[in-house]
Design a protein around this nucleic acid. Structure first.
Lengths: 230, 230
DNA sequence: AATCGAAGGATTGTTGAACAATCGCTAAAT
DNA sequence: ATTTAGCGATTGTTCAACAATCCTTCGATT
């Protein structure tokens, strides 16, 4: 994600499939464990332990840590180690500030029919997940929805930023998403935003999205407030 | 920039000044050389060479590379080495897409009197640089101006993103900023935007900024077009 | 002459071991 | 109770080695 293209061309023009380096695989593995909650926020990641568990060198683990740290999934405390990032109240607000800037702008810019179709597909994906009662799938569908909105801007950099922000949020949801209705609650919003987008009413769609994000932030802030009493 | 706080508190509460690690110092040194054009886009950075030049281990250079790569200042080609990033036409458009999303949103949100004063200070800094005929200072003043606009949002993440984007652009300017009038040309724009901001006319300020960014992008695209003929 | 393929050299990717620096903790001392 | 000193553990960094991969050069083949 923070690395280069997965494919490249050799001098002769042959297509070359880049095999991920060991460091990248370690980073991916840790990213996965972070995403599925095997590593909870605040947990310490000891270099030697992970090196042993994954059968790689300590130096390689170190490179993986650098990648994760650049994505804010992990925090380095000099001479003390790396810890799974934990989002405080300020971080939540900050993340939503980024989302407001990026998502609303992208939505207001509109997109091609294919782009809009991708947004619609994410909405339907969410409905199916809700019908099946699969909250996990509902969460990823929601992320697909917002990812598809940003993707309309056709900006690789915005896509990367959005992906990182969503990864950060996923990290937080393991504390927050205890109540199952969390995602289902926003399905009507996604539907309304998508309809406005399909109707070409970009300003209205943007306003709806903005309201959605504000509401979502307050929601999360409440959950955080009653969970963490610091 | 992509690392943690420079200060922290020890268990006893004493303030501890974090001394940058060697890897961070190497990254900073390379960042500096990139900023002042000692390393031109496309140039190759050989691990062993830099390790020898800076008197550090090859492994440490590697960590520094990872940091720079995460900031897009450098590109890793697997098994081939790292190269100074060079922005193509698509990259320029992309960078401006990010700037439009972030800067316009931040400006439209307004800021405290102190925030506005910081923007004003950057404008005056640019005027002084122009009066002194210092184009280098004019460039940094312009970056301060746009940085101050983003800073109004009080979002650490947006600030980091903006700083990285500006660093990327600085990389490109070494090809483009040959003509000295480049920055001076935008002084009136900055002044007008700042005045609108000070008058509380946020929407008008945002519109001016948007026009500014579009014009700046076209300008850069032209320079790129006649320089690179690929 | 042009194409293809096989060494060769150089650089990266990764490992393993070592050592200094620093941290948190515990226990002794005031 | 507070400070100090020492201890164990972990990080930060270096060094040396080796496999893997790439680019280039040089022949060999058609």
């Amino acid at each position: 994600m923070a690395t280069s293209d997965p494919t490249a061309r050799t001098a002769a023009g042959r297509l070359r499939v880049a095999v991920p380096s060991v460091a990248e695989r370690v980073a991916s593995e840790l990213r996965l464990q972070l995403a599925e909650g095997a590593l909870l926020p605040g947990a310490r990641l000891t270099e030697s332990t992970i090196a042993e568990e994954l059968g790689v060198s300590r130096n390689t683990v170190r490179e993986a840590f650098a990648e994760l740290a650049s994505e804010r999934l992990v925090v380095r405390h000099p001479n003390r180690g790396v810890f799974v990032a934990s989002l405080g109240a300020g971080d939540i607000h900050d993340v939503y500030t980024v989302r407001r800037a990026i998502e609303v702008t992208a939505l207001r810019g509109g997109g091609s029919p294919e782009d809009v179709a991708a947004v619609r597909a994410a909405v339907e994906e969410g409905k199916r997940a809700a019908a099946a009662g699969d909250d996990e799938a509902g969460g990823t569908a929601n992320q697909h929805f917002h990812g598809a909105i940003v993707a309309m801007a056709h900006s690789p950099r915005l896509n990367v930023i959005m992906a990182q922000v969503l990864a950060e949020m996923r990290l937080f949801f393991h504390k927050a998403a205890a109540d199952a209705l969390f995602y289902r609650r926003y399905l009507p919003d996604n539907e309304a935003i998508c309809e406005a987008l399909e109707a070409g009413e970009l300003d209205r769609a943007a306003d709806l999205l903005l309201a959605y994000l504000d509401r979502s932030e307050n929601n999360l802030a409440d959950v955080h407030g009653e969970a963490d009493t610091e």
